[in-house]
Design a protein around this nucleic acid. Structure first.
Lengths: 352, 352
DNA sequence: CCGGGTTGGTTAATCGTTTAGCCAACCGTG
DNA sequence: CACGGTTGGCTAAACGATTAACCAACCCGG
């Protein structure tokens, strides 16, 4: 197989030096090259199908045009896919490529993975969690520009991009209130996450705004069993919903911590003979489309803006590499809006 | 910020030449270096925290220790995540990293993406589809070792890794037969894919093996409307199932082309007052966990071995790079088994 | 004491780019 | 004609590794 053609092949073909080729092809400012030579170089490059060697260029320029995407979990949800996609497309638009690694939450694996990234001279790293939580950044990333994705750090100096959980919870509950609901239950898991806190805060904010008193008995927190399963699964949602719906004064609507828990609420409602949305309105969170459209009627929910988060994180990272002294101001962080996705599970409450 | 430390820093610290450092650190065979010097080099490298510069090494060795993962769609299903994860972990085990790009089915985007990959001197490319289909490989990949993932090519010379759809369909239907079903309906979409063909073939094979005559009226093929939506969605599955279940002699079990269509079957069953699995058994395909566990009772299905496919594809790619002349024998391809995932939607047929 | 083998390293070229600095030719002026 | 300023392009030194080729020193037998 013929050796890949390089800049010196182009130089030879055009009858100039490699320096000239480089100058022409990179349109170096302040370098004056004659029209005719320019033409010859362009043409030669074109004919030979020249493409620069990124490794060589990276070596010379001390930048690989590559960023590392470190995530704790890639496979379990489509969330990861959307974040990656957002990041990848935003990166590609800037001529950057994503180098992907997964840590599975394993510290040792994380260490070696990051080492591999650094060896390849990544220009920066996106450190992503698959649900909004607080992480501790590995020390080896100290010298590399880093942005947290769907995660926060204890260290305020490192920028993060997260969803605005409060606004999201607020949006969900306001949707219910707009339809006339006033007794709104919440089903939630018990693990304390920024997501949990934020969404509950949004719930209270929407209630307060509508002048509805906060009733703690309407908040059903349930722990996943067995203990080591993912919190916030269907089963947990089922139990929480069942508890609320069998209480003496049952709510007319349910705000579920996530779509999977909402699927559990559907099951509880079916068991109790409550039709959705006629007798019970349900709203979820996450917009996991597979879930929302597998249940019937299709689940209204609030979307986590994963694609946008990925894209935004790349933007933040780029900003970081341009201004080396990372100013830990609030402008380096981003809270992204969670829009409502209305489907068919919310209606007006039944008239009494 | 201190310049990254390189091989010459180590050399200086150990009081030797860079050549010696390289020899020691790479354990070059046939090169004899004294024990003491070895020690000094190791120690110096350790203390300085030396890590080789992958770009420089790649440039010299003409190989980047990096492989490109080109996929048409990353975000819509967790399938992509599993394939990527499998590929990533298998790659990492060999010291390789994945460079990820998404084409969104856009030919122009695909062209530029692949160009970016080639510029970075990827050692090979995994070309992945998100559902089993036939693709045409871009010409620019001609000179690069390539393996198809969940896809086949018209060109027999390019190796592929795909699920064994026939065995999968066979497995699903045999599960129903084992429970005593003899009237087994199939719901399927109308687009002609390897997946569709294979699963139907597996269906007939299982039937034949059990001595059950093939009845075409039990195969409900339905087209998605509006036309441009994804084939095989919930709605399509609903319509197909409804048709079968309202026929005069309705089947006691349904084999659905995928889990989403199975979710549609659940809805049809609910409407017709048929309980699952008491009056109707349902089995899906794909093992989309979010779907399988969002419906009630949890859906039994057949798993597409995406993780394994990703891992296997990396192995094939590695084999390819080691033996440059790609022998298009069948051993360069792989058909991976689709195991049964039994949940709660299959039981014995009701006694008449 | 000489010649040849072994041991333990070093020198320098190379991978494919970029870019600072140099230089030759040319042009118009005083 | 000497001279400064432009124009257009070349030379050569990086970037950080690997590796073929070379070499100095030592040892040992004859």
């Amino acid at each position: 197989m013929a050796r890949r053609i390089g800049i010196k092949d182009v130089a030879a073909a055009a009858g100039v030096s490699t320096a000239t080729v480089s100058h022409v092809l990179n349109r170096v400012e302040g370098k004056r090259i004659g029209q005719k030579t320019r033409q010859r170089v362009w043409q030669a490059a074109e004919e030979l199908g020249y493409a620069p060697n990124g490794l060589a260029r990276g070596l010379r320029l001390q930048r690989s045009q590559t960023i590392g995407f470190v995530s704790d979990e890639i496979a379990t949800t489509p969330h990861a896919g959307r974040m990656i996609l957002g990041a990848q497309e935003a990166a590609a638009a800037e001529g950057l490529l994503l180098l992907l690694v997964n840590t599975s939450g394993d510290a040792e694996l994380e260490r070696t993975s990051i080492e591999m990234l650094l060896q390849r001279q990544v220009d920066g790293v996106l450190y992503a969690a698959m649900y909004h939580r607080t992480v501790r950044l590995p020390e080896s990333l100290g010298a590399t520009p880093t942005v947290l994705l769907d995660a926060r750090s204890e260290d305020p100096a490192v920028p993060f991009v997260v969803p605005d959980e409060v606004q999201g919870g607020y949006t969900a509950v306001r949707e219910l209130i707009h339809h006339g609901h006033r007794r709104i239950g919440v089903t939630v898991q018990t693990v304390d996450l920024p997501a949990r806190q934020g969404r509950l805060e949004g719930y209270r904010k929407a209630l307060a705004e509508a002048g509805i008193p906060y009733d703690p008995s309407l908040v059903a927190a349930e722990t996943a069993v067995p203990f080591n399963t993912t919190p916030g699964d269907v089963e947990t949602g089922y139990r929480a919903a069942r508890r609320l719906l069998t209480a003496e004064q049952r709510p007319t609507a349910l705000f579920c911590f996530n779509d999977r828990m909402a699927a559990g609420a559907y099951r509880a409602a079916a068991e109790l003979g409550l039709s959705i949305p006629g007798q019970l309105s349900v709203i979820g969170f996450d917009n996991q489309e597979l879930v929302c459209e597998s249940v019937y009627p299709a689940l209204s929910t609030v979307q986590l803006p994963h694609y946008e988060m990925g894209a935004r994180a790349v933007a933040q990272l780029l900003a970081l590499t341009k201004t080396p002294g990372r100013p830990p101001g609030p402008d380096t962080n981003a809270l992204l809006l969670c829009p409502l996705v209305a489907r068919a599970s919310v209606a007006s409450p039944p008239r009494l």
